[in-house]
Design a protein around this nucleic acid. Structure first.
Lengths: 177, 177
DNA sequence: GTCTATACGGGGATAGAC
DNA sequence: GTCTATCCCCGTATAGAC
């Protein structure tokens, strides 16, 4: 991986996450990365290929967070950690995380990415198992509900800039489990 | 309002909702509406003006649904109706409703539309009041939580095509209130 | 009110020099 | 590996005829 190639990936990640895939032009990426536009196509074939490469990076960076949750033995704490995850990722890996949300609404890029991502499937499995250990009546439905909640919470974090209300919502959600 | 003008609005609504504002070209709208592209600009000045007009329509169509909820006297049933609303709107006014979600992720159109829409603010007020009547400890936070849930649920409805899991989620959410 | 024709810029992508 | 120059299409928007 050359320095310029990394620079392109980094810039593409930032712009795709903040401004969307459809609305970010390859020329803008090149300009902001300080490279020629042709180089993008040399390295990644086309704009889709660039996004694919960004998402591969994404998967690598998400994995350690999932592992950390998997190691927690107390199922109650595991659920709390899953809830915290959305918040933590937003703080520590904002661009990667935000991209997962943005991508859903970009019609020209393949859908179902997040749902099919290995890190996401691992997380879902951990969640159901935790609810089951805690003897919830319908662990699958509980996880589905929690997923909806975290989807909404993630959207809120990205779209509102008020840290107080974000943290207050987070605590309130956690108090319910 | 001439027939062609209405045709443009209708087509724009459908395409903006399904494919996004950024990714829908005025030429496509014109083609699918069976009018000349110039006519769009004649009637709506520019693409943003067209979206503004679509959103005005939106507001008009949303209002009756909100009124119907406001008339319910039992606060518990009122909450249930608020939860049902997302589902009902998706069935009956799919394009209008979907547009509210899509628009959030279209970087070139003004943000905060939904939050500022009169129909939405009315709905929020009804929600807080209902929780207060029901003696919930923190009505504002409860509504915020429910909003997150409905945001997630709305996203799910739009992005998954499995009616069974949608209805199951809806019932499960309602069972929690 | 409506259409046709057209302007102009920016989009993704390629060729070829270094 | 990297850059410059260039291609062609499609985007929004305008002018002017009917």
């Amino acid at each position: 991986m050359t320095e310029k190639k990394e620079l392109i990936l980094e810039t593409a990640l930032r712009l795709f996450a903040d401004e969307g895939f459809d609305t970010t032009s390859t020329s803008k990426i090149a300009r902001e990365a300080g490279v020629s536009e042709g180089l993008i196509f040399r390295h990644f074939l086309n704009k889709e290929g660039l996004m694919d490469a960004v998402l591969d990076l994404c998967e690598v960076r998400m994995n350690p967070h999932i592992e950390a949750i998997a190691e927690e033995i107390d199922p109650r704490k595991r659920i709390q950690k899953i809830i915290d995850l959305t918040y933590t990722l937003y703080q520590e890996e904002r661009e990667f995380w935000q991209l997962q949300f943005t991508i859903k609404w970009q019609s020209s890029y393949k859908q179902d990415h997040k749902k099919n991502a290995p890190y996401y499937q691992k997380l879902m499995k951990i969640g159901v198992d935790s609810f089951r250990e805690l003897k919830y009546y319908e662990p699958e439905k509980e996880l589905a509900l929690l997923s909806l909640l975290m989807e909404g919470f993630g959207t809120m974090m990205i779209k509102t800039s008020d840290p107080t209300s974000i943290e207050s919502s987070l605590e309130f959600i956690k108090s319910k489990y």
